Amino acid sequence: MKIIFVDGYNVINSWPNLKVQKDYSFDGARKSLIDSLHNYSVYEGCKIIVVFDAHKVKRSIEKKENINKNISIVFTKDGETADSYIEREVHILGRRFEVNVVTSDWLEQQTIFQRGAIRISALEFYNEVIETENRIKNKAIKNMYSSKNHLGDNVDEDILKKLEEIRRSK
C-alpha cells in the first residue's frame, strides 16, 4: 500500500485555494485540505497521514485521529515539528512500503529521500489532487448521463401493469 505523509501547514501555505482561505479561517483551511485529501485517497487507494505542527503550543501532547481507513490526522507534541515527526515515521516505514512525503521544505525533501521515501512538492501534489478531482467529476457526469433513470426502473411490475391499463382505458 502506498502511504503519503503530508506536512499540513506547509501545504496550506502552498496551495492557492488554501492560502486565501487560511486568512479567513485556519480551521476551515485544515478541513478543506482534509476533504480534498480524503477524496484523493479513496479514489487512488492510498493511505494519507496529514501532520500538523503543534510545537509552539505549550504542553500539547501528540494527538492522532483516524478519520477512516484511508486518512489519519496527527497533531505533533509540544516541541516537535511536523518535519521531525515525518522523518521519524519514514525511518520506520521507509523501505518496507512505498512512502511519499508532500512538503516544499527543501531540506526536508533531501532528508526524506535519503530515508527511502519519494518526495513531492506541495504544488506538484496540488496539481495531482486537482487532476484526480476532475477525473472523479468526469466519471460522475458520465455515469449520470449513461444510466437512464426511468419511472419504470423504480416501480413494481404489478403497479406498472395497472398504470398501463389506466392509460389504455382513456
Score class of each variant (00 low, 15 high):
I120D: 05
L18Q: 05
V50I: 07
I48A: 01
T81Q: 04
T132D: 07
V101W: 01
D35R: 13
I130W: 11
S84T: 11
E157V: 10
T111S: 14
H91Q: 14
V101M: 01
K56Q: 12
I141A: 11
R95N: 15
L18K: 09
K31Y: 09
V11W: 13
K162M: 11
N17P: 08
N149C: 13
K56P: 08
K63V: 13
Y43Q: 15
W15H: 02
S41M: 08
S169F: 08
S41A: 13
S25M: 02
K137W: 05
K31I: 12
N138G: 12
L33W: 02
F52Y: 05
A117Q: 09
L93Q: 07
G116E: 07
K58Q: 08
R167W: 12
R96N: 15
E65W: 09
V11K: 10
V51H: 02
A117K: 00
T103N: 01
I3F: 10
R115Y: 09
N143P: 14
E131A: 08
G116M: 02
K56E: 15
D23E: 14
G8K: 00
L160P: 02
K170R: 11
E108Q: 13
I130P: 03
A117L: 04
I34C: 13
K77R: 10
R115M: 11
A122G: 06
K47V: 11
N143R: 04
S84I: 08
K2S: 05
T132C: 10
I34W: 02
D7K: 01
F52S: 01
E164G: 12
W106S: 15
E157R: 06
H91W: 13
G79E: 04
N13A: 15
K170F: 13
S41W: 01
S104K: 01
A54F: 12
V11Q: 00
R167T: 06
